[in-house]
Design a protein around this nucleic acid. Structure first.
Lengths: 120, 120
DNA sequence: GTATATAGTGTCGAAAAAGGTACCATGAGG
DNA sequence: CCTCATGGTACCTTTTTCGACACTATATAC
C-alpha cells in the first residue's frame, strides 16, 4: 500500500502532501479512521460489518495503520478472541482532515457525476 | 485510478471520505493541486519541472483532475504549444484540505519513521 | 459430537496503477 | 539543413493492489 518510495520525498516542497495521502490513502483506511473517530473503539468484526470488506483486506489495512502509528490494537486474552482498535493520539490529530474530506465529499461528489445507486 | 466503483458507495456513511480520497489520491494529484494552489496557474512543463514525473503520468493525472472538475485546461493556439492549468472553483474549495495534509505531513511524517534521504 | 463466533492467515489470480521509451507536429533560430 | 522547445500520444512492461476462497484455533452452547 502506501509504502513511500524515497524518490517521492525529493525535489518537492509538496511531498508532505503526497506522504500524508499515502498514509491514509489505502482502499479502506480513510473509512476505518472515520469510523474510529465516530465510535472511539471498535472490535474487528464491528468494523467489518460497517464496511463491505474481506477479512483479509481489513486485517491488512489495520496492520498498516498500526505500523504508521495511527491506530492502537488491543488484544484480550479471551476465547473467542477479542481485539479492540482505537485511534492513537497521532491518529486523532487526523480528525479534522478526515472530517473535512467527508464534508467535501458530501458537498461535491454527487455534483461531479458519481451517482450513488441506492443509499450512501 | 480514482474510478469509484459503485459498491464503495453502498453500506457506509463514510463513503464520502473514500470518494474524496479517490479524487485526490492518484499518485501525483495531491502534489499537482498543491502547486496550483501556490502558483495559481502553471504550464505543463512548469509543473513537470516541479515534480519528478514522466510526461505520460503528468498528462494522465491532469486529465483525470480535469474530468473531475478540479482543474481547468486552457490551450493557446500557439507554436510551440502553450497550455495553462489552474484550479476551478471546485478545485479551490479543496485548498484547506490540501494545506492541512501538507501541514500534517510536515509535523508527522518524519516522526513516523520515513526518512528523507537528501532534502525534502 | 456438532455448530457458532471471533480474529485472523495463506495462496492465487485479475485488474489497476505506474513507469519507460519512442514518436509526433510545428515554428523559430542559426 | 539541423536543432530546440512544447505538449502531448502510443505501445509495452513492471509493480502494486484488490478480492475470492479456503483454512485455522478455541471456548461455549446445544
Amino acid at each position: 500500500m502506501g509504502r513511500i518510495r524515497h524518490q517521492d520525498l525529493r525535489n518537492s516542497p509538496a511531498c508532505p502532501v503526497e506522504g500524508t495521502l499515502e498514509l491514509i490513502g489505502g482502499k479502506w483506511k480513510g473509512v476505518i479512521l472515520y469510523h474510529l473517530i465516530q465510535q472511539g473503539t471498535l472490535r474487528f468484526n464491528e468494523l467489518r460489518r460497517k464496511m463491505n470488506v474481506t477479512q483479509r483486506m481489513l486485517t491488512n489495512q489495520l496492520r498498516e495503520l498500526e505500523t504508521s502509528g495511527l491506530i492502537d490494537r488491543k488484544v484480550y486474552a479471551e476465547v473467542p478472541p477479542k481485539v479492540e482498535y482505537s485511534l492513537t493520539e497521532r491518529g486523532r490529530s487526523l480528525e479534522p482532515i478526515i472530517l473535512a474530506l467527508k464534508r467535501w465529499g458530501d458537498d461535491n461528489i454527487l455534483a461531479i457525476g458519481y451517482v450513488a445507486p441506492g443509499t450512501c
